[in-house]
Computed example of a mutant assay.
Amino acid sequence: MISVVVPTYNEEQNIERCLRSLADQTVPRETYEIIVVDGNSKDRTRELAKPLADKVFIQTSKRVGGARNDGAMAAKGDIIATTDADCILPRDWIERIERNFAERQIVQLYGTVYPIEDTFRNRLSLMGANAFSRFGYYTRTIYFTLGCNTAFDRDAFFQAGMYRCIDAGDDLEIAQRMRKLGKVYLDPRLKVGFSMRRYQQFGTIKSLWEWLYIVLRGGEASGATYSRREYK
């Protein structure tokens, strides 16, 4: 079984779209579970998620990495996949994850992204991100494993110590520990629709700079924050 963990916080505008895409997969619904871990939203996120998910509960650990860890600890599956509440999953997402783990000796799988808000600027931005991801993978220098499109062997995930509960870069950092336990594999055809709302509202350069600034300081930085943003 695959367990899909979806962290949420004030996502009433997006959570149904995300969960409906997860429910409409090419594999039988009973072969995977959907776990929504909510950061105590002030809107209707949990109410909207309950009819579409197998489990919905409030997180007890800190930050988005902690929400993913809470979901993993509640999961039944031997593969743990993660995505974000503002993403759209293609119909073969679960099937492709299953196939990669069945056919390859891997401990972590990740893929690429495309913009939900389909503009030239957004396509260009994510084209650069995907190129960086491929370069890092094929040169074995850095694995750009976005938390919106990744999956783990359950035992290896726990052995590695799960996600760090930091403000930014937790999804990038964990791959450096996972690679010590086995192969981390990039499947370029494992694609998810990625929301560009952060970059549209706060600006691409500013958002990337905030992320890099925090990551270079070990995931925590005074005067800067990356998670729990309020969107219009």
Rank of each mutant, 00 (worst) to 15 (best):
I166H: 05
I142T: 13
D24K: 09
R99F: 08
R123G: 07
T119W: 06
Y231M: 15
W93T: 02
R96M: 02
G169P: 05
N40V: 07
L48T: 08
D70N: 13
V107Q: 06
E12W: 07
V192N: 08
N122L: 05
S3D: 06
D86W: 09
D170C: 11
A168N: 00
A81V: 04
M178G: 08
L181W: 06
R197S: 12
Q59G: 15
N14H: 15
E220Y: 14
I94A: 12
V4P: 00
Y213D: 14
L172Q: 09
D54M: 05
L172P: 04
I214F: 00
D155W: 07
K62Q: 12
G182W: 02
C87G: 07
Q25T: 01
Y199F: 15
Y213P: 02
R68E: 03
M127S: 14
G66H: 04
G65K: 01
N130P: 07
G169I: 04
E11M: 11
S207Y: 05
Y213R: 15
I106M: 10
D153P: 06
N14R: 12
I88K: 07
K76S: 12
T141I: 10
L212D: 13
L124Y: 14
E16Y: 02
D153N: 15
L172I: 13
V6I: 14
E33Y: 10
T60C: 08
V37D: 05
T45C: 06
S133R: 15
N100Q: 13
R29K: 10
D118A: 11
S207G: 02
M1N: 08
V56H: 01
S61R: 15
A85Q: 02
P51M: 03
I166Y: 03
R179C: 12
Q159H: 09
Q105M: 09
I174P: 12
P188D: 02
I116G: 04
T119C: 00
Y137S: 12
G218S: 07
I97K: 03
R134V: 14
T119P: 01
Y114W: 13
Y163N: 14
G147W: 04
R20P: 01
I142C: 11
S125Q: 15
F194A: 01
M178K: 03
E173M: 12
M1Q: 10
T150R: 13
G203P: 10
F135Y: 12
Q176P: 08
